[in-house]
Nucleic acid binder design. Structure first.
Lengths: 248, 248
DNA sequence: ACAATATATGCAAAAAACCGCAAAAGCGAA
DNA sequence: TTCGCTTTTGCGGTTTTTTGCATATATTGT
């Protein structure tokens, strides 16, 4: 394993788990602890991570030391892994933005070969870090609140795509009102994405379930798959199962 | 084995495995390590791969490593302030990407009211942090090396704009060869931007001056204003003044 | 406080990179 | 073809980087 490869690997592990143990790393990479320690030291000097006794912590983990936020990141990681497992090579996929989507991008198999279309600036950047997938940014005016491109041009661009999947971050989901949002422009984008895709996957932490917002994006029956951090057998998800939604 | 054959082979291996070892290559191709090293060096200078101790890594695999973000940040700040002073409310402005552009975005007057059109994901995000300007992201396939959207759609979108200004980050500038780049896709974008604008401003640290790259973007006479960190009276800038370029 | 574990430091061996040089190969023109 | 010219390549010697080990020091949990 080349040195630079190790540094990449360490940062990747950090993004995924928010912490790494020196012992784990030296095992997995097959080098001595000394080498691992020197690697961590170098990354630490470059401000890429926080070195602590026994390993290292992710920079974002440490700087944003909001306990609630950390808890969410753990759950979003679970969601991301479940969602990533559903993606197969050759797929054309439309995605929205949101923090869950960013974690999803990080969790993708490095060998995956697929095409992602997105309106989210941050998601596009995160997808672009993947070694092999193709990323297409859908252009239009940037909505500052959501950091999404929105407008007639974007909708039109989406309409010209025939995607296998559409992955949407949940803002609010409810068995009665379906998927809802509070930004009219964003709703137009998501509607277009759903229309342009064969299957619709919604991802989000369970906190977003059973809540409603001002504007409706889609009927509950338009959603094919729902992914939360919960166990698929959690009773909280029963109402969604009854609406013929697959739960992962 | 011919030299061009070797270069081809190396890039092919790199696409397949995302990494190559110098020792492997010299074995498989039946040439000395020195030759391999020189091959890798050449490809590295052409920005085709990242050379590391013991071999090379694929570009897309390695781009997450932006440890030199702060490189010359002081000078880029000076440039940003000079450029920001030239922007007036009501203007329509096309911009490329690059670190200088990000600093420029931060340096804009908070009261400014203008419209920015860009192909750079990072620049779009930075512009979006500004309270009042309008940001339009130009969509297309994302080029992973440059984090710019490139392609026919993007070029077409740019052609449909009539901008007052076009602000380009300099990659290489020279009085003889003009503005040059090494990525064909990016060149197409920049050419389109120049064509769509009344005035062309180039910004970049003086290190980029008097250097050339493979592909020409624009003639020296197409450039109206040049902004570097240097004092406008610096003799290094004299050749550009003689070409009727305004120096700030 | 103490044992277990992690870190720092100096050191030496191995691997890789660098440098200059000369031989070899390729190339265009007479 | 042959001659001059440039480019490419391999080689020997030197320098730098990387790595693991041994030893000394520091930190942690009980």
């Amino acid at each position: 394993m080349l040195k630079e490869e190790r540094l990449e690997y360490i940062l990747h592990e950090l993004n995924l788990h928010n912490k790494v143990l020196s012992a784990d790393l030296s095992n997995k990479m097959g080098v001595s602890d000394d080498t691992v320690r020197r690697d961590l030291q170098e990354l630490s000097l470059d401000n890429k991570l926080i070195k602590v006794h026994g390993g290292a912590l992710s920079k974002s983990f440490h700087t944003a030391f909001d306990r609630e936020m950390v808890y969410e990141i753990e759950n979003k990681n679970i969601i991301a892994k479940k969602a990533a497992a559903l993606i197969q090579s050759g797929m054309y996929i439309l995605t929205s933005g949101g923090t869950s989507m960013l974690e999803f991008a990080k969790a993708l198999d490095p060998n995956l070969n697929a095409s992602f279309f997105t309106c989210s600036l941050n998601a596009a950047i995160e997808f672009s870090h993947h070694p092999s997938i193709e990323v297409v940014m859908i252009g239009d005016k940037v909505s500052k609140d959501s950091m999404l491109t929105t407008g007639a041009n974007a909708v039109q661009a989406i309409e010209s795509i025939q995607a296998d999947l559409c992955i949407l971050g949940i803002n609010s989901l409810d068995t009665q009102f379906g998927l809802s949002e509070n930004d009219w422009e964003v709703v137009q984008i998501k509607k277009a994405m759903i229309k342009a895709s064969k299957k619709v996957i919604c991802i989000g932490i369970s906190e977003k379930l059973n809540s409603q917002q001002k504007i409706k994006v889609a009927d509950i029956k338009d959603i094919d798959i729902l992914i939360t951090e919960l166990d698929p057998n959690d009773p909280l998800l029963d109402p969604y199962k009854k609406n013929e939604i697959l739960i992962y």
